[in-house]
Design a protein around this nucleic acid. Structure first.
Lengths: 357, 357
DNA sequence: CTGAAAGCGCTAACAA
DNA sequence: TTGTTAGCGCTTTCAG
C-alpha cells in the first residue's frame, strides 16, 4: 500500500518510507532526521543515516517543496556574466546564501529585457523563494511592479528604478565626483564621460556626479563629450576613436566602468596616443584587470563583494519579514589612483579629496 | 474535499482544479491544455487559458515534476564564469536547450573540486534531467564515475578524463600544432608553453601538440619553458616575467588560452618588450578581446558556440536514449593570424599550413 | 521521541 | 475529446 522496502527493486526511487522500514523507525522520525531536527537523539540519527546511505537515499527537494511551499532556491539575475564585477558579486552572494542553506539559480540576461522577462517567469514557475536582480538596460517600472505583484521577495542591486523597492548599490554619484575632481586637479578641462547602458540608474548617477563636479568647478558639461556604448571593451574602443576624431577632442575621460575603460586604453594605443601621459582615463569598479594595465588604470572602487553580501542579507531579511519597511542601501566608493592619469599616488579612501554627498 | 474555486481566498495558490471549476472543464482537460496537448480543441484551449489568466494561474513545476519524474532542467557547470569563452558557450547551450523546453541551472565551480562536488550533489537533489560539465582542474575519474552511477545523463565538454564518457571538445592537439608551426616558420626556436590548469585534458592535449610540432621539426621541448598558471591575466603576466628572467629566455610563446595570452601581452609591455616584434605570442580560443589587442592577438579559434551546441545536442540525445553508444566529438580548430607574431596575414582555415591529425 | 493520516498540485491510466 | 481515480515523496498536525 504505502511504499515499502520493496521499492528498491530496479527503478523505484528510495524514499523515506524505505529508510523507515530498513531502520525500524517511522517515516516522520526519518523525515526529522533528514532535516536536522534537534528533537532527535544522536543514536537515532546515526542509525537512520546508516540506513539511508546503505539504500542510497537521495533527498527529494521537489517533493519537500511541494509540501512546504518553500524551495530554498534564490534566483540571481545579472546582466553580464563576463564582467568580473558581477563574477565577484556572484561569489559573495552564493557564499552568503549558502550559509542560509539556499541554492542560487544564476542567470544572465545580457541586458535583454525580453530574456529577463522570460527568466523571471521561469523563476516564478520554479517557485524560487526570492530574487536578486540587476535590471537589464531599459527595464521599465512595470516589469518590477509586476514582480512586486507576484509577492515574491526580491531586491534590486547595482541598478534601481524610480520606485520604492529594496535596493543595494554603490554611491555612484559620489564616486564619479571623486574621479572628475581628480581629473580636474590634474589640469584637465575637456573631460569625456564614456559608455554605459543609456537607461541604467548606475550610469545616470555617475553622469550626475560627473556633471556636478564640473559645475562646482565652474565648468559646463559639453554634451558632445558624453556618449553611451555597449558595456564592452569594444564599446570603449570605438567610442574613444570617435571622440578623438571630433573637432575639439577631450583630453581625459571618466568611463562607465573598467571594461569600457580598458577598451578606451586599447583604442588610445591604436590611435597612437599614450594613455596616462597624453590622455587621462579613469574607470569604475576596480576589477582585477585594472591593476594589470600599463599604465595601471585609476578607477573608482565599489567593492562588489560587499554589495553582493548586503543584497543577499537584505533579501534573506525580506523573506523572513515581508512586511518590514523597504530599504535602500548605498555603499561608499573609493578612488584608487594608479597611473592612467599621470599620478603615481596610492589609494585615496572613501570621502577622498572633497566633501559630503 | 478536493480544492475548489474557494482556494482563491487570500494565500491559497490557484490550481488546475480552480481553473477547471471556473471554466467548466475537468482537471485533466485543463492539465492537457497547459501542456499543449494536440488532443484539445482550439475553443477549449482558448476558454481554459481565459480562466487561467483571469484567476492568475501559475504552472507549478515542482508538482508536475514530482509526478512525471522529470524536471525539465539541465545543470550546466563551468569552471570560470568570467571567461568569455564559457560565456559564449553558455549562450549557445541555453539557446539549444531552450528550444527543447529545458531550463538551465548555471553554476560556476571556479576550478574548485570541492565546490564542484557540492554542486553536483545539489543538482541531484533538485532532480535535473541531465548535466553538462566541464570538469574542474584536478577532478578525478571517481567523481565522474560516481556521477555515472547516479544514472543521470551527462556530457563532458572542453575537458575529458581517462574514461569512457560522452564528450565534446576541440582538437586541442591539432590547434597547438598549427600554432607552433606558425611560430617555427617565423624563425622562433625557443618557444614557451604558458599557463593552464595542470590537470586538465585540454592543457595536456595542447601541450602534446606543442611538443609534437617541435619534435617533428627536430627540436626538443625544454621543460623550463612550459609552465602552469592560474587561468587568469594575472597568471600570464607573472609567468612571462619569470620566463624572461631566466638565463636563456624564450622568444615566443603559445599560451593555454587567450586570457593567459593577454596577461602575457601585458607582462611583456611591463617588461619593456614589444609583443609582435621582440616577442611572439599566440593564444587559444579566439575570444572577442583578442582582436582588440595592440598588436592583435594571433590565436587558435575553437568556436565555443559550436562546442556548446553540440554538447547540448548530445545531452538531449543521451536523455532520449540512455543506452546508445557513448560518443566523443572532436571539433577542428583554425589558426587566426593577427599581428602578435609579426605577421599581418589573414585567417588560415582548418587544416592550416600542414597536415592531418 | 514516535506513529497515523491527510494532502501539497500535478499527471497518467483507464473509461466513457 | 473528457472525466475519474490514484498516487509521486515529502511534511505536518495530533495523539501517543
Amino acid at each position: 500500500m504505502t511504499s515499502t522496502a520493496s521499492n528498491r527493486k530496479s527503478l523505484m526511487r528510495v524514499t523515506l518510507a524505505d529508510i523507515a522500514a530498513e531502520s525500524g523507525f517511522s517515516r516522520s522520525t526519518v523525515s526529522l532526521v533528514m532535516r536536522d531536527s534537534p528533537l532527535i537523539s544522536e543514536e537515532t540519527r546515526r542509525r537512520v543515516y546508516e540506513s539511508a546511505s546503505k539504500l542510497g537515499y537521495v533527498y527529494h527537494r521537489a517533493a519537500a517543496s511541494l509540501r512546504t511551499r518553500r524551495s530554498y532556491t534564490i534566483g540571481l539575475m545579472i546582466t553580464d556574466i563576463t564582467n568580473p564585477f558581477f563574477a565577484e558579486m556572484t561569489m559573495a552572494i552564493e557564499a552568503e546564501l549558502d550559509e542560509a542553506n539556499y541554492t542560487v539559480l544564476l542567470s544572465n540576461t545580457s541586458e535583454q529585457v525580453g530574456k529577463q522577462d522570460r527568466i523571471l517567469r521561469m523563476l516564478r514557475e520554479y517557485g524560487v523563494d526570492g530574487i536578486l536582480i540587476c535590471p537589464a538596460n531599459g527595464t521599465d517600472v512595470e516589469t518590477i511592479e509586476r514582480l512586486q505583484s507576484w509577492s515574491i521577495p526580491f531586491v534590486l542591486f547595482t541598478r534601481r528604478l524610480a520606485m520604492d523597492a529594496d535596493y543595494v548599490g554603490a554611491d555612484n554619484r559620489l564616486g564619479a565626483e571623486l574621479a572628475v575632481e581628480h581629473l580636474l586637479s590634474h589640469g584637465h578641462r575637456r573631460i569625456a564621460f564614456i559608455g554605459g547602458p543609456g537607461h541604467s540608474s548606475a550610469r545616470r548617477e555617475r553622469l550626475q556626479g560627473y556633471q556636478s563636479a564640473l559645475s562646482s568647478f565652474g565648468l559646463e558639461a559639453d554634451e558632445h563629450l558624453s556618449v553611451t556604448t555597449p558595456v564592452t571593451r569594444d564599446g570603449g574602443y570605438e567610442a574613444i576613436l570617435n571622440l578623438l576624431a571630433q573637432p575639439h577632442p577631450p583630453t581625459a575621460a571618466l568611463c562607465y566602468n573598467d571594461i569600457v575603460a580598458i577598451g578606451v586604453l586599447l583604442g588610445l594605443r591604436a590611435a597612437g596616443r599614450r594613455p596616462g601621459v597624453e590622455f587621462a582615463v579613469i574607470g569604475f569598479d576596480n576589477i582585477a584587470e585594472a591593476a594589470l594595465q600599463r599604465p595601471g588604470l585609476t578607477t573608482v572602487s565599489v567593492t562588489p563583494g560587499q554589495i553582493g553580501a548586503q543584497a543577499a542579507q537584505l533579501l534573506l531579511e525580506r523573506i523572513q519579514n515581508p512586511d518590514a519597511a523597504l530599504r535602500q542601501i548605498v555603499l561608499p566608493p573609493a578612488l584608487v589612483i594608479r597611473e592612467s592619469c599621470g599620478s603615481h599616488a596610492e589609494l585615496v579612501r572613501p570621502l577622498g579629496p572633497t566633501q559630503q554627498r
